[in-house]
Each structure stands twice: as C-alpha cells, then as structure tokens.
Computed example of a mutant assay.
Amino acid sequence: MKTAERLFLITQKISRNKGITAPELAKACGTSVRNIYRDIKRLDEIGVQVLSKGREGYYLVENVTQIPSQLNAEEYLAMALFPYLSDGRAPHSHLFRQAYKTALEKILPSLKYPKEFLDTSTFMSERIRIQTTPVTKEMNFSMQRVMESILRQVTIRCIYHSMYRDAESDRMIDPYYIVPRGGHLYLIGYCHTREKVLTFRLSRFREVELTSKRCFIEEDFDIDRYLSDLWGIGSKEDEKPTTFQVWFSPAVARYIKEESYYQDPEITDNPDGSILFAVTVRGVDEFLRWFRQYGTHAELLKPEKYRRQIANEIEEMRNRYRANV
C-alpha cells in the first residue's frame, strides 16, 4: 500500500472508529506500529489534526472553532497556566498576564461571548488563589519550553538537577504530563537516559531545549495508574511499594478520615475513637514526612524497619532537648 493510500485509510479509520489504537491501525493497514507513528506525524504536517490520548487511542479533530487570529505559543501557555502561576495575585508585570489577555481577546469573539466577559475572566483569574511556591524567572522559562514541547509533541534535551544524588545530568525526555502536587509542578515523562517513565520537578530544570524529534505517549502508559500508589509525587527510582499501618488518636482521627487521598487507604474505627490507617504506597520519605506532622497523636505500627527509625529519631530529639535544659 502506497503512503498516500495509507494516510487516507488512517484518516478514515480514525474518523469512523474514535479511540482506535496504533496496533489496530497497523493491522488494518498491513504495516508496523512504528510506521503508523510516522504517518500520524505526516498527517499533522499536512494539516490533518489527530489527537493522541495514549491508551485511549486516536481521535480526529473535527469542527474546530476558527478564531480570527491564531494563538501564538506564549498565548497557549498563558491560557493553560496563568491562573495557576499567577498565585492569585496576578501583578501587571507577570510573565503571562498580557498574553492571557490577548488570547482571550482573540478567542471570545468567535465563541460569541459578550465583551464584558473578558474583564470578568481576568478578574476571576486574579481572585482565585492557589497556594504555590514562588515562581522564579528561570522556572517560568523552563515551564514555557516544557509546555511548548507538549503542544508540539517533541522531545526535550535538558540539564536536570537530581536532589537525591545532588548532581546535574544531561537528559532527553519525552514530556507526557504536568502535574501539580504540594505547591510544586512536576513533569512526568519518558527519560531516554534511564529508559523509563520518571517524575521531574520543574524547578530543578537548569536548561531546556526543544528538539525536532517527535514523541508520543506510549499506549500502555496509564497516568492514573502511575499516580495511584505514589504518596505525594516523587519516589526514588525503582522504589517498591511499602505497606504502612498507623494508629491515630481520637483528637486527629476525624481529620485523617476527612482528608482526600490518591490511594485507597483502609481505615478501621476503634471503640475509643482512635483509628487504624493502612495504605500501600511508593514514596517512603514523603509518607514519613506526612506522618511526622501528627506528633504524639500518631504511632507508626508497621513496617518494623520504619518504626525503629521513628523511635531512633524520637530518642535523638529527647537527648537534644535534655542537653539544652
């Protein structure tokens, strides 16, 4: 089958079978999955927009609303990130403020919104406050590059500082998702150096450069499954899941039960109002940091290894305070 014929067939298949996958397209076209990836890139280059949703397959972008003037890369970034990165204060000097306003001016007329909606949208973006850490100019630059790479679906070359090893490394990363957790932004993507999907904190990027290499989310990657057993967002590479069992006093039990978790912990009520909390997670260090905030109202029961670690920490604190009395 000639390339032109295959491109036409792929377009028809995606149009009629929303969510069709690359292996299914390869079978229908009598070609390889790798060729399908190349063909999707060719379709994009000739103006046929195909949306890739990883394991959910491909979708043809149809009936797209035409806007009077196409958004530039900065305006796309502003629309996606301004409410988050403005930290609720949105100063006039904010990097994305003007781009956010011009993007709205282009889009709203085509959607037939009243002119007053522009001022309302800007007003609301200023009044919705999201607790984040301060965003530096360097992080804004990294954010722009990473967001642009996601929009263009291209690999990035970067220098990344690993806090765990306290060292910088040169990496090639296929960007998958940007995820906010605990006041920070993280990039989840395929690292060509480690040959696996890893999590990177955006504030730790030192340099970011876009390449011309197209990339796609692997079809067997499920973002919800990836995040489901992470406590917080980060874990050490190759860290195995650990099951924790914690006792919480009646004074804090209701707060523990009220809190939302990415995992599905097992909570058992005791007659005295205390609870037993059991959960299996990756990210031991982050879990223990969460546990420590409850002080005397929490007791780590299992695993024994980390129970001894907490006991040693308590003994060290006791000795330190005794020495200063």
Rank of each mutant, 00 (worst) to 15 (best):
Ile130Asn: 05
Thr199Ser: 15
Ser162Glu: 03
Pro303Asp: 03
Pro303Ala: 04
Ile46Cys: 12
Ile128Leu: 12
Met1Ser: 14
Lys53Asn: 11
Tyr306Ala: 09
Arg292Asp: 00
Ser235Ile: 00
Thr136His: 03
His161Cys: 00
Ile40Gln: 04
Ser110His: 12
Glu56Gln: 15
Thr11Gly: 05
Thr122Gln: 10
Thr133Val: 13
Leu95His: 11
Val48Gly: 11
Lys240Ser: 08
Ser52Lys: 14
Leu288Ser: 01
Ala323Ser: 07
Leu108Asn: 06
Thr120Asn: 10
Ile156Met: 08
His297Lys: 03
Gly47Gln: 13
Ala278Ser: 13
Glu286His: 10
Ser169Arg: 13
Ser121Pro: 01
Gln66Phe: 04
Ala22Gln: 05
Gly57Glu: 10
Thr243Trp: 10
Ile10Trp: 07
Ser32Trp: 04
Tyr261Met: 09
Ser52Tyr: 11
Pro68Phe: 09
Glu24Ile: 15
Tyr255Val: 05
Glu116Asn: 08
His94Tyr: 15
Arg181Tyr: 02
Glu239Tyr: 01
Leu43Trp: 02
Tyr294Ala: 01
Arg127Trp: 06
Ile128Lys: 05
Ile107Thr: 12
Val284Glu: 09
Ile67Lys: 11
Val179Trp: 13
Cys29Thr: 15
Phe205Ala: 03
Arg204Asn: 07
Asp174Gly: 03
Val33Trp: 02
Glu209Asp: 01
Leu104Glu: 02
Lys236Ile: 00
Glu74Gln: 11
Ile150Ser: 07
Ile267Ala: 07
Glu207Leu: 00
Arg152Leu: 08
Ile188Glu: 03
Pro134Leu: 01
Asp272Glu: 08
Thr3Leu: 14
Tyr190Met: 02
Ser121Arg: 07
Trp290His: 04
Ile150Gly: 02
Asp272Gln: 11
Ile10Arg: 03
Glu74Leu: 12
Thr155Val: 15
Val246Ile: 14
Thr268Ala: 12
Ala251Leu: 13
Asp272Thr: 12
Leu210Ala: 02
Arg225Gln: 06
Phe96Ser: 07
Met172Glu: 13
Glu209Phe: 00
Ser212Cys: 00
Tyr177Asp: 06
Ile267Asp: 13
Phe291Glu: 02
Arg181Glu: 05
Gly30His: 14
Tyr306Leu: 14
Arg194Trp: 06
Glu315Asp: 13
Ile14Cys: 12
Gly273Lys: 04
Asp170Ala: 04
Ala167Pro: 01
Asp264Cys: 03
Glu239Gly: 00
Ser274Val: 08
Thr102Leu: 12
Leu276Gln: 10
Lys13Cys: 06
Asp224Lys: 14
Gly183Asn: 05
Glu74His: 10
Arg308His: 04
Ser274Tyr: 01
Gln153Leu: 10
Ile40Trp: 09
Ile150Pro: 08
Leu95Glu: 09
Val252Tyr: 11
Leu276Asn: 06
Glu138Trp: 02
Arg171Cys: 02
Val146Asp: 05
Thr243His: 11
Lys18Gln: 15
Ser32Ile: 06
Phe277Lys: 07
Met317Gly: 03
Leu85Ala: 06
Gly283Asn: 03
Asn319Ile: 02
Tyr176Arg: 04
Arg129Pro: 05
Arg127Gln: 14
